[in-house]
Design a protein around this nucleic acid. Structure first.
Lengths: 110, 110
DNA sequence: CTCAAGGTAAGACGTGCGTCGTACCTTGGG
DNA sequence: CCCAAGGTACGACGCACGTCTTACCTTGAG
Protein backbone atom coordinates (compact mmCIF):
# COMPACT_ATOMS: atom_id res chain seq x y z
CA UNK A 1 0.00 0.00 0.00
CA UNK A 2 2.07 2.90 -1.26
CA UNK A 3 1.67 6.51 -0.37
CA UNK A 4 -0.99 6.32 2.31
CA UNK A 5 0.01 9.63 3.80
CA UNK A 6 -2.85 10.71 6.01
CA UNK A 7 -5.26 8.16 4.55
CA UNK A 8 -6.97 6.20 7.34
CA UNK A 9 -7.65 2.52 6.75
CA UNK A 10 -11.31 1.65 6.15
CA UNK A 11 -11.85 0.42 9.71
CA UNK A 12 -10.15 3.51 11.08
CA UNK A 13 -12.68 5.88 9.56
CA UNK A 14 -14.48 7.53 12.46
CA UNK A 15 -18.02 8.81 12.31
CA UNK A 16 -17.18 11.93 14.29
CA UNK A 17 -14.46 12.94 11.89
CA UNK A 18 -16.66 12.22 8.89
CA UNK A 19 -19.54 14.27 10.25
CA UNK A 20 -17.23 17.15 11.14
CA UNK A 21 -15.78 17.07 7.66
CA UNK A 22 -19.24 17.05 6.09
CA UNK A 23 -20.46 19.86 8.31
CA UNK A 24 -18.71 22.35 6.03
CA UNK A 25 -20.75 23.29 2.95
CA UNK A 26 -17.71 23.50 0.67
CA UNK A 27 -16.45 20.07 1.63
CA UNK A 28 -19.96 18.69 1.32
CA UNK A 29 -20.09 20.13 -2.16
CA UNK A 30 -16.87 18.39 -3.14
CA UNK A 31 -18.06 15.02 -1.86
CA UNK A 32 -21.43 15.57 -3.47
CA UNK A 33 -19.92 16.29 -6.86
CA UNK A 34 -17.71 13.24 -6.62
CA UNK A 35 -20.60 11.08 -5.45
CA UNK A 36 -22.79 12.28 -8.28
CA UNK A 37 -20.11 11.61 -10.88
CA UNK A 38 -18.97 8.20 -12.13
CA UNK A 39 -17.30 5.79 -9.73
CA UNK A 40 -13.54 6.06 -9.56
CA UNK A 41 -13.55 9.49 -11.13
CA UNK A 42 -10.32 11.36 -10.42
CA UNK A 43 -10.32 15.13 -10.36
CA UNK A 44 -7.79 17.75 -9.44
CA UNK A 45 -8.44 19.93 -6.42
CA UNK A 46 -8.70 23.00 -8.57
CA UNK A 47 -11.32 21.49 -10.86
CA UNK A 48 -13.99 22.11 -8.25
CA UNK A 49 -13.66 25.87 -8.58
CA UNK A 50 -14.23 26.51 -4.90
CA UNK A 51 -14.66 30.21 -4.14
CA UNK A 52 -11.65 30.31 -1.81
CA UNK A 53 -7.91 30.66 -2.07
CA UNK A 54 -5.54 27.84 -3.02
CA UNK A 55 -4.35 27.49 0.56
CA UNK A 56 -7.91 27.05 1.80
CA UNK A 57 -8.60 24.46 -0.88
CA UNK A 58 -5.59 22.50 0.29
CA UNK A 59 -6.89 22.73 3.85
CA UNK A 60 -10.31 21.36 2.91
CA UNK A 61 -8.89 18.49 0.94
CA UNK A 62 -6.61 17.56 3.80
CA UNK A 63 -9.63 17.47 6.09
CA UNK A 64 -11.51 15.25 3.64
CA UNK A 65 -8.49 13.00 3.22
CA UNK A 66 -7.83 12.62 6.94
CA UNK A 67 -11.50 11.90 7.56
CA UNK A 68 -11.22 9.06 5.04
CA UNK A 69 -13.69 10.42 2.53
CA UNK A 70 -11.26 11.12 -0.27
CA UNK A 71 -8.12 9.52 -1.58
CA UNK A 72 -5.43 11.73 -3.04
CA UNK A 73 -2.69 10.40 -5.26
CA UNK A 74 0.14 12.29 -6.90
CA UNK A 75 -0.01 12.22 -10.63
CA UNK A 76 2.97 14.09 -11.84
CA UNK A 77 2.14 17.71 -12.04
CA UNK A 78 -1.04 17.75 -9.98
CA UNK A 79 -2.73 15.63 -7.36
CA UNK A 80 -5.85 13.71 -8.22
CA UNK A 81 -8.66 13.22 -5.73
CA UNK A 82 -11.05 10.27 -5.79
CA UNK A 83 -14.01 9.43 -3.61
CA UNK A 84 -13.51 6.39 -1.38
CA UNK A 85 -16.96 5.23 -2.33
CA UNK A 86 -16.72 1.56 -1.40
CA UNK A 87 -15.03 2.25 1.93
CA UNK A 88 -17.59 4.85 2.89
CA UNK A 89 -20.51 2.75 1.75
CA UNK A 90 -19.26 -0.25 3.67
CA UNK A 91 -18.66 1.72 6.83
CA UNK A 92 -21.61 4.12 6.68
CA UNK A 93 -24.18 2.72 4.27
CA UNK A 94 -26.55 5.34 2.90
CA UNK A 95 -24.43 8.29 3.90
CA UNK A 96 -23.51 9.31 0.36
CA UNK A 97 -27.13 9.04 -0.69
CA UNK A 98 -28.01 11.72 1.86
CA UNK A 99 -25.54 14.08 0.25
CA UNK A 100 -26.67 13.48 -3.31
CA UNK A 101 -30.25 13.95 -2.12
CA UNK A 102 -29.27 17.37 -0.84
CA UNK A 103 -27.92 18.13 -4.29
CA UNK A 104 -31.30 17.28 -5.79
CA UNK A 105 -32.96 19.67 -3.38
CA UNK A 106 -30.70 22.53 -4.27
CA UNK A 107 -31.21 21.82 -7.96
CA UNK A 108 -34.99 21.65 -7.84
CA UNK A 109 -35.32 24.80 -5.77
CA UNK A 110 -35.78 26.81 -8.97
CA UNK B 1 -49.31 23.57 16.46
CA UNK B 2 -48.60 24.87 19.92
CA UNK B 3 -45.27 25.69 21.43
CA UNK B 4 -43.03 25.24 18.42
CA UNK B 5 -40.40 27.54 19.83
CA UNK B 6 -37.26 26.90 17.85
CA UNK B 7 -38.57 23.69 16.34
CA UNK B 8 -38.13 23.72 12.56
CA UNK B 9 -40.83 22.15 10.42
CA UNK B 10 -39.91 18.80 8.86
CA UNK B 11 -39.19 20.33 5.47
CA UNK B 12 -37.10 23.04 7.08
CA UNK B 13 -34.63 20.60 8.57
CA UNK B 14 -31.30 21.29 6.86
CA UNK B 15 -28.60 18.73 6.33
CA UNK B 16 -25.85 21.16 7.23
CA UNK B 17 -27.37 21.98 10.58
CA UNK B 18 -28.02 18.33 11.31
CA UNK B 19 -24.47 17.32 10.49
CA UNK B 20 -23.05 20.17 12.53
CA UNK B 21 -25.21 19.15 15.46
CA UNK B 22 -24.12 15.53 15.16
CA UNK B 23 -20.46 16.48 14.88
CA UNK B 24 -20.33 16.90 18.65
CA UNK B 25 -19.80 13.62 20.52
CA UNK B 26 -22.04 14.60 23.42
CA UNK B 27 -24.94 15.50 21.17
CA UNK B 28 -24.37 12.36 19.16
CA UNK B 29 -24.56 10.39 22.36
CA UNK B 30 -27.91 11.96 23.24
CA UNK B 31 -29.41 11.20 19.84
CA UNK B 32 -27.93 7.72 19.93
CA UNK B 33 -29.49 6.95 23.30
CA UNK B 34 -32.84 8.22 22.13
CA UNK B 35 -32.58 6.31 18.86
CA UNK B 36 -31.67 3.12 20.67
CA UNK B 37 -34.56 3.46 23.10
CA UNK B 38 -38.26 2.96 22.34
CA UNK B 39 -40.00 5.25 19.87
CA UNK B 40 -41.58 8.31 21.41
CA UNK B 41 -39.57 7.98 24.59
CA UNK B 42 -39.48 11.25 26.54
CA UNK B 43 -36.56 11.97 28.80
CA UNK B 44 -35.44 14.96 30.80
CA UNK B 45 -32.24 16.71 29.80
CA UNK B 46 -30.58 15.75 33.03
CA UNK B 47 -31.36 12.06 32.63
CA UNK B 48 -28.50 11.72 30.16
CA UNK B 49 -25.91 12.49 32.82
CA UNK B 50 -23.67 14.42 30.46
CA UNK B 51 -20.30 15.25 32.04
CA UNK B 52 -20.82 19.00 31.70
CA UNK B 53 -22.56 21.79 33.59
CA UNK B 54 -26.29 22.46 33.46
CA UNK B 55 -25.81 25.49 31.26
CA UNK B 56 -23.83 23.47 28.74
CA UNK B 57 -26.50 20.79 28.70
CA UNK B 58 -29.07 23.46 27.91
CA UNK B 59 -26.84 24.70 25.09
CA UNK B 60 -26.52 21.23 23.54
CA UNK B 61 -30.24 20.59 23.69
CA UNK B 62 -30.95 23.92 22.07
CA UNK B 63 -28.60 22.98 19.25
CA UNK B 64 -30.34 19.64 18.80
CA UNK B 65 -33.75 21.27 18.93
CA UNK B 66 -32.90 23.99 16.40
CA UNK B 67 -31.38 21.42 14.09
CA UNK B 68 -34.69 19.56 14.18
CA UNK B 69 -33.41 16.39 15.75
CA UNK B 70 -35.18 16.66 19.08
CA UNK B 71 -38.52 18.00 20.23
CA UNK B 72 -38.75 19.57 23.65
CA UNK B 73 -42.02 20.07 25.47
CA UNK B 74 -42.60 21.60 28.85
CA UNK B 75 -44.06 19.20 31.31
CA UNK B 76 -44.57 21.08 34.46
CA UNK B 77 -41.44 21.03 36.45
CA UNK B 78 -39.01 19.83 33.82
CA UNK B 79 -38.78 19.73 30.05
CA UNK B 80 -39.03 16.45 28.24
CA UNK B 81 -37.05 15.71 25.11
CA UNK B 82 -38.14 13.29 22.41
CA UNK B 83 -36.43 12.18 19.23
CA UNK B 84 -38.13 13.37 16.03
CA UNK B 85 -37.66 9.93 14.61
CA UNK B 86 -40.24 10.00 11.84
CA UNK B 87 -39.26 13.46 10.64
CA UNK B 88 -35.58 12.57 10.55
CA UNK B 89 -36.19 9.24 8.90
CA UNK B 90 -38.37 10.81 6.25
CA UNK B 91 -35.91 13.56 5.52
CA UNK B 92 -32.63 11.67 5.90
CA UNK B 93 -33.37 7.95 5.69
CA UNK B 94 -30.71 5.80 7.27
CA UNK B 95 -29.11 8.57 9.25
CA UNK B 96 -30.19 7.30 12.65
CA UNK B 97 -29.00 3.83 11.79
CA UNK B 98 -25.50 5.21 11.32
CA UNK B 99 -25.54 6.56 14.84
CA UNK B 100 -26.84 3.41 16.47
CA UNK B 101 -24.21 1.48 14.51
CA UNK B 102 -21.58 3.64 16.11
CA UNK B 103 -23.03 2.72 19.48
CA UNK B 104 -22.58 -0.95 18.64
CA UNK B 105 -18.95 -0.27 17.80
CA UNK B 106 -18.24 1.47 21.04
CA UNK B 107 -19.97 -1.30 22.93
CA UNK B 108 -18.14 -4.16 21.26
CA UNK B 109 -14.76 -2.54 21.61
CA UNK B 110 -14.18 -4.47 24.87
C1' DC C 1 -45.89 28.72 51.93
C1' DT C 2 -41.35 27.56 51.18
C1' DC C 3 -37.80 25.47 49.06
C1' DA C 4 -35.07 22.38 46.33
C1' DA C 5 -34.72 20.75 41.68
C1' DG C 6 -34.71 21.39 36.77
C1' DG C 7 -33.83 24.78 33.08
C1' DT C 8 -32.70 29.06 31.06
C1' DA C 9 -30.27 33.66 30.08
C1' DA C 10 -26.30 36.36 29.82
C1' DG C 11 -21.56 37.05 29.91
C1' DA C 12 -16.76 35.49 29.84
C1' DC C 13 -12.98 32.69 28.28
C1' DG C 14 -10.08 29.53 25.53
C1' DT C 15 -9.62 26.82 21.67
C1' DG C 16 -10.48 25.39 17.08
C1' DC C 17 -11.64 26.27 12.47
C1' DG C 18 -12.17 28.72 8.05
C1' DT C 19 -9.88 32.06 5.73
C1' DC C 20 -6.05 34.45 3.69
C1' DG C 21 -1.15 36.00 1.99
C1' DT C 22 3.28 34.70 1.22
C1' DA C 23 6.95 31.76 0.30
C1' DC C 24 8.33 27.56 -1.48
C1' DC C 25 8.52 23.10 -4.03
C1' DT C 26 7.66 20.04 -8.01
C1' DT C 27 6.73 18.95 -12.75
C1' DG C 28 5.13 18.93 -17.36
C1' DG C 29 5.12 21.99 -21.55
C1' DG C 30 7.23 25.10 -24.68
C1' DC D 1 16.42 24.74 -20.04
C1' DC D 2 13.09 27.56 -18.00
C1' DC D 3 8.84 28.84 -16.40
C1' DA D 4 3.97 28.79 -15.42
C1' DA D 5 0.69 25.92 -13.10
C1' DG D 6 -0.81 23.12 -9.35
C1' DG D 7 -0.14 22.20 -4.36
C1' DT D 8 1.78 22.58 0.13
C1' DA D 9 3.70 24.76 4.54
C1' DC D 10 3.56 28.30 7.73
C1' DG D 11 1.87 32.05 10.14
C1' DA D 12 -1.82 35.31 11.10
C1' DC D 13 -6.49 36.80 12.02
C1' DG D 14 -11.40 36.72 13.20
C1' DC D 15 -15.26 34.40 14.41
C1' DA D 16 -17.86 30.56 16.13
C1' DC D 17 -18.28 27.01 19.41
C1' DG D 18 -17.93 24.38 23.78
C1' DT D 19 -17.41 25.33 28.35
C1' DC D 20 -18.14 27.51 32.80
C1' DT D 21 -20.05 30.70 36.61
C1' DT D 22 -23.57 33.34 38.19
C1' DA D 23 -28.11 34.91 38.52
C1' DC D 24 -32.75 34.06 37.77
C1' DC D 25 -37.30 31.83 36.84
C1' DT D 26 -40.76 28.12 37.37
C1' DT D 27 -42.99 24.35 39.54
C1' DG D 28 -43.96 20.30 42.13
C1' DA D 29 -43.22 18.42 46.86
C1' DG D 30 -43.31 18.69 51.72
Amino acid sequence: MPDDEGHPAPEEIELGRVLSALADPLRRRVVRELATGPDGEARTCSSFALPVSKATVTHHFRTLREAGLVRQVDRGNSRMATLRRADIEQRFPGLLALLTAEAAEVTEQA
